[in-house]
Design a protein around this nucleic acid. Structure first.
Length: 805
RNA sequence: GGGCGUGUAGCUCAGCGGGAGAGCGCCCGCUUCACACGCGGGAGGUCACUGGUUCGAUCCCAGUCACGCCCACCA
């Protein structure tokens, strides 16, 4: 028999078995408490990355634990239509085919996206299964399936009727490539080197000029004012006068506004409400006009005939040339600043004024803030909880319309007179309109608008389904830090608004897995590592274990070392199980502990169970994985299995074999949430199986053995002493027998150095005596600390005596 | 500019008020009948720096230096 555990085939077999036997299935059940986790639906365009695999590892751990603990578990799965990302991916494909979405037209384009989804949609579910995610795959949902669309429409109409949805002409982030608006949260910022040009604007009364600095001379023709800080002594006399904008030679007012930073540039700011967010605000407050010179394609529009159709760079050159001829350029210097890019295509964002739909947040977010303050939802760790509250408190109104073709089209219709109607369906809208001919708004909703409904739209809302009654509110959510504002907070507020309760009670913010070199894992940088490659090499169990060990700090570099550790653990477990099973003979698992090492391992198993519950209740996954590693290697294999081995091979000693089987059962149960496949595989070979391990009960606390946790301390001390010094301590009975079985002098070359050990002990004794001789330590340190120090001193003295005879 | 976080063994990371830890790597000894993906032993750390609190600080507090992430309207 191969001495190595090979997860290949074993894992896939169990994944299939669990699913076909319906063990992942969740059904409403009033008699049991439910535990619900709606896994964040990945973008349908993508494949799972390491972050998803980490999320599956810790989420599935919790689900398997809760399932064993008797909860009615629902692990919801599905994927997201991911508006802009999907549209971008399909557009790229069209580009390769030499066509474009505009050439195809909207209907044909949407059909292409659906084709695309059919081709790639199953991949994500395959990856979930391969990681061992115990999701109810029958319940797979898509954020644009028919039922989901109804939920999204209902939510929109609900908000509309509350008066929280409105249309406004405001400055927004515009992606000139996708030709759509974007929320602030869909941008990335990068530092770029630009030229900062200082240009003199002549004063209208001929008394001089005022200099302003700009990185975008192309926007000068859209200037409507020059602003200075009200306290700025240099310009106080100019406020109220007029300046002449270069190139267009229009007269504009010089105004005072506190938002101008006197320290920057010349302290004077040109106001371009059409193309800058700050200027827009200032312009609105001062009642200024809002001309625009840049169009939706990012090129100059025809507002200024001489510049029409030019790129911004070309337009800048024209404007600068005009200024140069008139000696209006004071200086030009290089300047590094941060600019906003579209996170999908990295085009430079154009701030433009545009008519968009907005969702007012003030009323909507209030109950969510209260729920977070009252900890009806808790983010872990605590620092992220505070961040979540801050983010909600500062959440501005939400621009929810996008000028895309892929997504949930807004349920807004307009009649010939421009009157708008909001209803869930076109029929209802027509009824509202008294049968008039209607045209539907072409915009679609921000993809996060539908994501916000995930915890209950997946349960059948807006219908009052049995699922909803049984499984709402849910329990768990997990996410990366940057998603808190986009998604978790919005799920909380939508749940409170529509169902009157929070959708979950705990949100785990997990670490980001970085590439081994510390950079972000990214396909374009070539630093990505595909979780399925890791699974293929090490197995899903080892991968899950390794990722759990990487889940505990903010950012972790991906390290194969942790996965290796997982593979070693699976292998060790497999082999010790082989030892017990091949010697089991006719024994059946039964708790019949007689001897020291048997009571001891049962106590250790129970102590570890308690430790695991403690760690996992606090979502400390790495610590739990660590405890399992040492339980298996140190306690179970190195001590317990070695101690019973001589008797295990004795066919007449049925009790020791029965207890070994029972101890192995418990070990498997504790390991199952982390390593489901190898544990189920071994479990299936135990005699007298009643059920699958996945639905076996989690071990109950067992008082009988708790006193025996330290039972082997003396033997372990004796072993350490022997290995270091070659001296055998005096032991009797069970202790002597275990010592000989485990330490087996024949296996250990007793080349220890008694002299070095004596020296070490003398040093320790001197240290302990020093501490206990310090009156202030004895008086002020906690009693148990002092007592522990006394015990140590006594032990060192005993050991020294044993060595020196 | 604001917020969060990190600096511990060659590497990746635990620990976080009372004797410096794990895995990998390295050195030495073992084919031993569950496992060489193993067993036993070992080398290797002024726990970033400076102050403070404490009987006692890697751990708590303040500051410094480095690094990372998120957010932000200095044109």
């Amino acid at each position: 028999m191969d001495a190595r555990y090979n997860p290949e085939g074993v894992e896939e077999r169990w994944q299939q078995t669990w699913e076909t036997e319906g063990l992942y299935n969740a059904e409403p059940d009033a008699s049991r408490e439910s535990y619900v986790y709606a896994f964040p639906p990945p973008n349908v365009t993508g494949e799972l990355h390491m972050g998803h695999a980490l999320q599956v590892s810790l989420g599935d751990l919790v689900m398997r634990l809760k399932r064993m603990q008797g909860f009615n578990v629902l692990f919801q799965t599905g994927y997201d239509h991911a508006g802009i990302s999907t549209q971008a991916a399909v557009e790229k494909q069209l580009e390769r085919e030499g066509t474009s979405r505009k050439e195809l037209g909207r209907e044909a384009f949407e059909a292409r996206v659906w084709d695309w989804l059919r081709e790639y949609g199953g991949k994500i579910m395959f990856q979930f299964r391969r990681l061992g995610a115990s999701m109810d795959y029958r319940r797979e949902r898509f954020t644009m399936d028919a039922g989901y669309v109804r939920a999204v429409m209902r939510f929109f109409v609900h908000l509309y009727r509350k008066g929280w949805i409105y249309r406004a002409n405001r400055i927004i982030n515009w992606c000139p490539f996708h030709e759509t608006s974007l929320s602030d949260l869909e941008l990335v910022h990068v530092d770029v080197d630009d030229a900062l040009t200082t240009i003199r604007y002549p004063l209208a009364d001929g008394s001089g000029h005022i200099a302003i600095a700009t990185v975008r001379p192309a926007t000068i023709p859209a200037d409507v004012a020059v602003a200075v800080h009200p306290e700025d002594g240099r310009y106080r006399d100019l406020v109220g006068k007029e300046a002449i904008v270069p190139f267009t030679e229009r007269r504009v007012p010089i105004i005072a506004d506190e938002r101008v930073e006197p320290e920057f540039g010349t302290g004077a700011l040109k106001i371009t409400p059409g193309h800058d967010p700050v200027d827009f605000e200032i312009g609105r407050d001062h009642g200024l006009p809002e001309p625009m010179v840049i169009g939706p394609d990012g090129r100059m529009n025809d507002a200024i005939p001489e510049l029409a159709g030019l790129s911004q760079d070309e337009a800048s050159e024209r404007v600068l040339a005009w200024c140069r001829e008139r000696d209006l350029i004071e200086k030009r210097e290089s300047y590094r600043h941060s600019v906003a890019l579209c996170e999908r295509c990295e085009s430079r964002i154009e701030p433009l004024i545009s008519l968009q739909w907005w969702c007012a947040m003030d009323e909507l977010k209030r109950p969510a803030i209260t729920a977070l303050r009252e900890r009806r939802v808790a983010y872990h760790p605590e620092s992220q909880h505070r961040f979540a509250i801050d983010s909600l408190e500062n959440a501005p109104d939400w621009c929810i319309s996008r000028q895309l073709w892929w997504g949930h089209q807004l349920p807004i219709w307009t009649d010939a007179d421009g009157e708008t109607y909001c209803a869930e369906t076109e029929d209802e809208a027509r009824e509202l309109a008294g049968g008039k001919e209607l045209k539907r708004d072409e915009d679609v909703l921000d993809t996060w608008f539908s994501s916000a409904l995930w915890p209950f739209a997946t349960l059948g809302w807006p219908d009052e389904t049995e699922d909803l009654k049984s499984f709402y509110p849910g329990d768990l959510q997990t996410t990366a830090r940057e998603i808190i504002r986009l998604w978790e907070n919005r799920m909380i507020l939508s749940g409170l608004e529509l169902l009157g309760d929070v959708p979950f009670t705990d949100v785990i913010i997990h670490s980001t897995v970085l590439a081994p070199d510390g950079r972000r894992m990214s396909k374009s940088l070539g630093t990505g590592i595909d979780p399925l490659d890791v699974v293929a090499e090490y197995g899903a169990d080892a991968t899950r274990y390794g990722l759990l060990k990487m889940s505990s700090t903010q950012d972790v570099r991906f390290s194969h070392g942790f996965i290796e550790e997982g593979r070693k653990l699976a292998n060790k477990l497999w082999n010790v199980a082989r030892l017990i099973l091949t010697n089991a003979g006719d024994a059946k698992p039964a708790l019949e502990p007689r001897d020291l090492e048997e009571r001891w391992i049962l106590a250790r198993l129970d102590a570890t169970r308690a430790q695991l519950e403690e760690h996992w209740d606090l979502f400390e996954f790495a610590a739990g994985a660590n405890a399992l590693y040492h339980l298996t290697f140190d306690d179970f294999c190195d001590w317990y299995a070695e101690a019973i081995k001589p008797r295990l091979q004795d066919p007449t000693d049925r009790a020791v074999r029965a207890t070994a089987l029972a101890a192995l059962e418990r070990l498997l149960a504790l390991l199952h949430p982390v390593m489901p496949h190898v544990t189920e595989e071994i479990w299936s070979q135990l005699p007298d199986r009643q059920s699958r391990l996945i639905v076996a009960p989690w071990p109950e606390p067992d008082e009988r053995f708790s006193a025996d946790v330290q039972a082997l301390d003396r033997v372990q001390e004796a072993a350490a002493l022997f290995r270091r010094s070659g001296v055998t301590a005096k032991l009797d009975g069970d202790e002597r027998r275990i010592f000989e079985a485990v330490v087996r002098p024949s296996r250990v070359k007793a080349d220890g150095d008694a002299g070095a050990e004596i020296e070490r002990l003398r040093k320790e004794i001197a240290r302990a005596e020093g501490m206990l001789g310090n009156e202030r330590f004895v008086e002020r340190a906690p009693a148990d600390v002092v007592e522990a120090e006394r015990e140590k001193l006594a032990r060192y003295r005993r050991e020294l005596e044993a060595l020196t005879g």
